[in-house]
């Protein structure tokens, strides 16, 4: 009973943190987009906006809900948002959710799988390097890794298109699926390969190197020697103790950098004309498509904050010292011993 109660309180706490963060994020995004210079009417009316007379302009502003103070506008937006109505896209003249719906899945697939792939490959590469610390293999991987991580994403994308699409006709160079093949999983996978390679390659080494160095630090600890003196091999010590112990640090870094990988997809989406939300975000910021921008910012916020919360939960379960209550309990034990 007590345990259940504790769990409920814990969940409630995390939920509170989540909603407060999203609320704060929406206020910041709302005010910043409106402070930025530019004319949102251009996004909706195009060239016509410049030829409007004062009356027409006022009418248009009213129609788009851009009159009144910033607070009024925010309150109006917030009221709608709670009901699930995020407004109309200025550029596409449709409900923003309808515009985003299909594309969001594409990006989450590309970014999500790319993220997980980066995560696992980085882990494997890091462990491989740490096991062979100082060997020719480690040295080679470090050199190659540094070079690959220096290649700009857009350039790598273009080179890959040149090799695999233009020269050898092996893989498609743009889009998310072939014409009339929207339901074909194979076609979707084929379209995803090149963008995925770019995303993974451009982020992989950064994390692999981080893991390698963390593991090498961990290898120097005395408990590793202790385990070896009990007859464990290097590999066993690595998997059983070292990898486990660097996980909390690694997971929190991955969680924080979730947005880097998602940002990466934006550029890649543009080069590969991949119909994701990357292009949308860029355009919405450029053309002052406020409603679109708000939704996209909030979606990214939700992903990152959720990632952080999940990361924290995993880390706490690996290293119990990270639990807040544990630390306070421990401190109380120490304090009571002192007194």
């Amino acid at each position: 009973m007590n345990k259940r109660k504790k769990l409920l309180i814990l969940i409630a706490k995390k939920m509170l943190v989540f909603f407060v963060s999203i609320f704060a994020l929406s206020i910041i995004a709302f005010s910043m987009s409106r402070i930025a210079p530019g004319d949102p009417l251009v996004s909706y009316y195009g060239d016509r906006a410049e030829r409007m007379n004062t009356e027409e302009r006022e009418h248009a502003i009213h129609r788009l809900g851009l009159d009144g103070t910033l607070t009024d506008q925010y309150v109006a937006w917030f009221k709608g948002a709670i009901k699930g109505d995020f407004g109309e896209s200025f550029k596409y003249k449709e409900n923003v959710l309808t515009v985003i719906a299909g594309r969001l899945v594409n990006t989450l697939l590309l970014g999500g799988i790319g993220f997980l792939l980066t995560f696992f490959l980085a882990l494997l590469l890091g462990i491989l390097c740490a096991l062979h610390e100082g060997d020719w293999l480690d040295t080679l991987l470090c050199k190659v890794g540094t070079i690959t991580s220096c290649i700009p994403e857009f350039w790598l994308s273009l080179v890959l298109i040149l090799i695999f699409s233009v020269t050898f006709h092996l893989l498609p160079s743009s889009g998310a699926f072939g014409l009339g093949e929207a339901d074909s999983i194979l076609s979707r996978i084929r379209h995803m390969i090149l963008p995925m390679v770019v995303i993974v390659l451009s982020h992989l080494w950064y994390y692999a190197y981080l893991i390698r160095n963390k593991l090498i630090d961990e290898k120097r600890k005395e408990y590793v020697l202790m385990s070896k003196s009990m007859g464990l091999t290097n590999r066993q010590v690595m998997w059983r103790h070292c990898v486990r112990n660097i996980m909390p640090a690694f997971i929190s870094i991955m969680a924080i950098s979730l947005n880097h990988v998602l940002e990466g997809t934006y550029i890649v989406e543009m080069v590969y004309s991949y119909p994701g939300i990357g292009t949308l975000s860029f355009e919405s910021a450029k053309y002052h498509d406020y409603n679109m921008l708000m939704v996209l910012v909030i979606i990214m916020g939700v992903v990152v904050i959720l990632g952080n919360i999940i990361g924290q939960i995993i880390s706490e379960n690996i290293d119990h010292r990270m639990k807040e209550e544990a630390i306070i309990e421990d401190a109380e034990v120490v304090a009571s011993e002192k007194i």
Binding site: Y223, L225, S227, H241, H320
Partner: peptide, 10 residues
């Protein structure tokens, strides 16, 4: 050093 010769997370 008994502080470091045990795995802290186990």
């Amino acid at each position: 050093n008994p502080m470091t010769s045990l795995d802290p997370t186990m």
